[in-house]
């Protein structure tokens, strides 16, 4: 019997049986998802920033740059623009994930988790789940802003849901890249570098202009950019005008918008788990 305010006589090892490992991995992941979501409630400004920046981009592209842009083969540029901006927003999530991972590592919280009898996957899955919630909120807000500035999806409800699913699938893939890079780097300076590189990576694609208008080699690279497939696929599903293109990858946007994220997850999720286990070893 222990007194209520007892700091505790040694009782290490009083832990659940090995058999319930999977259940505990899921419980741990859920506990950590709850932690990250509690952060959102305590820091609403951060979420507002994550939503506000892409909204600003929508307004800039729609009202400042969009007037000069033309869609090859005709069509309203704004209708083609919004799916590109939705995709770009999924890309920005990469550095958001990375910031959270680097912050935990720097504060010693990651080390504490690693010294505890927890499933290694739980920390990463918890992070991933919370970031997906944040991204879904952000994307929802952005869809509404799109509608407010005159974007009109016309592909029907099923295609609409499929398009949103493809955007979130891309986000899910990129967050594993963010987790991996966050575990790899040691300084916040590296996060700034990644944030800066997101822009050229986003522009070297079919998000905002047709790759056909780019120099030959650059255009080919842009067509094979995974972001281009997601943007082209969502344009098709939303019933918005797109750039088209003769290359194989441009002809199969929906297929590639599924394949690319799966390839990225297949590479970066195991890398992340390995890195988490072997961190600073």
């Amino acid at each position: 019997m222990s007194a209520p305010a007892d700091v505790g006589h040694v009782r290490a090892g009083v832990l659940p049986a090995e058999g319930s490992r999977l259940r505990w991995a899921l419980t741990d992941a859920a506990t950590l998802t709850g932690r990250y979501l509690a952060h959102l409630r305590h820091q609403p400004a951060e979420l507002a920033g994550a939503i506000g920046f892409p909204i600003l981009l929508v307004l800039m592209f729609a009202f400042l740059l969009g007037g000069m842009m033309a869609v090859p083969g005709g069509g309203d540029y704004r209708q083609a623009l919004l799916p590109g901006l939705f995709t770009m927003t999924m890309l920005f999530g990469l550095s958001a994930t990375m910031v959270a991972v680097v912050t935990d590592a720097q504060r010693g919280i990651t080390d504490r988790f690693r010294s505890m009898p927890m499933a290694p996957s739980a920390v990463l899955v918890g992070r991933a789940a919370a970031d997906m919630v944040t991204s879904a909120i952000t994307l929802g807000a952005l869809l509404l802003v799109g509608l407010a500035v005159g974007w009109r999806p016309s592909g029907g409800p099923a295609a609409f849901v499929a398009a949103v699913g493809l955007l979130l699938l891309l986000r899910f893939a990129l967050l594993w890249v963010g987790i991996y890079l966050g575990l790899l780097v040691r300084s916040p300076g590296a996060v700034t570098a990644v944030q800066t590189l997101e822009f050229p990576f986003g522009f070297l694609s079919g998000l905002f202009v047709a790759p056909a208008t780019m120099p030959l080699v650059v255009g080919a690279v842009a067509e094979w950019n995974p972001l281009s497939s997601t943007a082209a696929a969502t344009r098709a599903l939303f019933g918005n005008p797109g750039w088209g293109g003769d290359s194989w990858v441009a002809q199969h946007p929906v297929l590639m918008a599924v394949v690319w994220p799966l390839v990225i997850v297949a590479v970066f999720a195991p890398l992340s788990v390995h890195r988490y286990r072997e961190m600073s070893r």
Partner: peptide, 8 residues
């Protein structure tokens, strides 16, 4: 470093 959650 005090490895506790600063926000909570």
């Amino acid at each position: 470093y005090a490895a506790v959650d600063e926000i909570l």
